[in-house]
Structures are given as structure tokens and as C-alpha cells.
Amino acid sequence: MGQALSFGLTQYDVEELKEHCDNRFTQAEIEGLYKRFRALDRGRKGFISHEEFQSIPELSINPLHTRMGQVFNHVNFKEFVHALRATSKRASREDRLRLIFAIFDVDNDGRVSAEDLELMVRQLAGTSLSEEEVTTVVEMALRDAGATKNGLSFEDLATALEGAELNMDVELPLAY
């Protein structure tokens, strides 16, 4: 008769999840994330809704809150862990670049087009930049990258961010 402290995660589950995120998280971290996931998922639906996401005050004042809400839209726990792996302290540079690319790739077609970039700049800069300024900036940026009509590929993004620190580690809560 086991005490259900791990909330029903079996060793198989944990190992599968660890593999799914390329061992970026330890077992203890996965358990901590699972506890957090269950706390956010108020209705015990198995996924996190948009409203539940927006109810985190610290997140709701983040300029990226809408886009993060889309990236984390209705994620189940497996997707949750996978999306967060870039913020582990064991994450590789590529993990981080992949996450940034996924955030910029709004229409999810594998390239960051001018439209994607425009949408993102609007979210990041808000009303402080006018429409024309946004268009100018996006044009400039794409020209800098020597991008084709289809926009930036993942490699273009990686080149542009070469040398940038990209620090996005976060301290994870532990389950116990």
C-alpha cells in the first residue's frame, strides 16, 4: 500500500518525461513541476487553460504574456515539461534558441516571417512604437539578416544571437 505522495507518477512516467526533455530535469525537478502543474490546473482537467495562466500575477504583467499563453495553450504535463526545458540550468544553447524561435514563430510554420516579427515587436514594445516604426524596424532587421522573402530560418536566428548571453535559468520548486 503505497502512499500517494508522488501523485500517481510511476518510475516509468518519470523516465519517459526525462527522456522527452533530454534529461534537462532531474527526477526531483519533474516531481516539483508536476506538483506545480496540478496546482495550476484547478479543475484537474489534465491541461492548463488560458485563464489559469493569466491568473498568475507575475506572468500577467510580462510583455510576452499573450504569446506565452499561446505557447502554453492547453498544454498537458508532457508538453509543459518540454516547453520549460530551455529554462533548466542544464539546458543547452540550442534548447534556448529553439524556445526563442518557437516564441517568434507565431504561425508555427518553421520560419519567422515579417508578419511574425511584426506581431512580436508589437507585443514587446506596446504603444511606445508607432505602426510605421514597427514596420521600419522589422524591415531593417530582416535586411540585416539578409533574409529571403520567407523570413528567418532557425539558423538565421542562431547566427543573429551569436554571442548573446541568453540567460534564462529559473530556480525550480521541489515537491518536498
Partner: peptide, 18 residues
């Protein structure tokens, strides 16, 4: 434009624990 790491870090910190 592309270096949004600090926003992502903030958001992730809030997602995993607040």
C-alpha cells in the same frame, strides 16, 4: 529584437512558481 531571454526567464519563473 530577438534577444527576449530576460522576458522568457521572467515568464518561466512565474510559471514554475509564484
Amino acid at each position: 529584437l530577438l534577444d527576449i531571454s530576460s522576458f522568457v526567464q521572467d515568464a518561466a519563473a512565474a510559471i514554475v512558481d509564484d
